[in-house]
Simulated assay, not measured.
Amino acid sequence: MTGVHPLEVLLIGLAVVAVLVVLLRWTYGRGRSLVQRRPRAGNPDEYGLLVTVASPADRDEARRMSGVLTAEGVRHTLVATSAGPRLMVWPDDALRARQALERR
């Protein structure tokens, strides 16, 4: 017998189908790409519930202000918006953050 065993044909066929399924799921899958998108700077009002507490002039001043908020224990985020850097906090922390930045 010089033919190919039917079990080998079945396994090769299943392997080809499995590879095609993986490639098609990767190609047509939504929202999960292996290639990271370039971040887009949004407007300061596009950050949901976060409130702007400071609009530093440059990145160095923004990092200094961020250090002040970190030292005070205020949860914050430094955002590069289309209008320049912004320090943003949750609304409950806004008053405390503003007071901490005014003290220093």
Rank of each mutant, 00 (worst) to 15 (best):
R63F: 11
L101H: 12
G42W: 12
R40T: 13
A100I: 05
R59S: 10
V9G: 03
R98W: 01
V79P: 03
G3L: 06
A100Q: 01
R38F: 07
T52W: 03
A15G: 13
V22K: 03
D60S: 11
R64A: 11
Q36A: 15
V19E: 07
A94L: 06
A15Y: 03
E46W: 05
A62I: 05
P39R: 08
R75D: 10
L10S: 07
V68R: 07
V68I: 15
P44S: 11
R86Y: 01
L24C: 07
H76I: 05
Q36P: 04
L95D: 14
R98F: 01
E102V: 13
L10C: 05
L78P: 01
L11D: 03
V74Y: 00
L14R: 03
L50V: 02
I12Y: 05
R30M: 07
R25Y: 04
G42Q: 12
A62R: 02
Q36Y: 05
E102Y: 08
T70P: 00
A15Q: 08
Y28G: 02
I12E: 03
V22L: 12
G67H: 08
D60V: 11
S82H: 09
S55M: 10
R64L: 05
R96I: 02
R37F: 05
Y28R: 08
G29F: 04
S33V: 12
L50A: 11
R96L: 08
D60A: 14
P6G: 13
R30I: 14
L101S: 12
V4C: 04
D60K: 07
P44A: 11
S55V: 14
L69D: 00
E61Y: 01
W26R: 13
R75V: 09
A94R: 13
D92L: 10
L50E: 02
G84E: 05
T2N: 15
T70Y: 07
P39W: 10
T27E: 09
W26G: 08
G31V: 01
P6D: 13
V4Y: 06
A57M: 07
G3V: 04
L50P: 00
A94W: 10
M1I: 07
V19H: 05
L78N: 07
G84A: 08
L69V: 08
R37E: 14
I12T: 07
L69H: 01
G42V: 04
G42M: 12
V4P: 03
L95N: 06
R38Q: 15
T70S: 14
S82N: 14
A71K: 15
L24D: 03
G29W: 08
A15L: 14
T27R: 15
V35D: 04
L87P: 00
L34R: 13
S55H: 09
R25P: 00
R59D: 12
L78H: 05
R96D: 10
A83N: 08
L95A: 12
V51M: 06
R25E: 06
R32W: 09
R59C: 00
V16M: 10
M1P: 14
V53D: 00
V35Q: 05
A83T: 11
D45H: 11
Y28F: 15
A100G: 06
S82Q: 15
H5W: 12
A15D: 05
G84Q: 05
A71V: 02
S55R: 14
V22G: 02
R37Y: 04
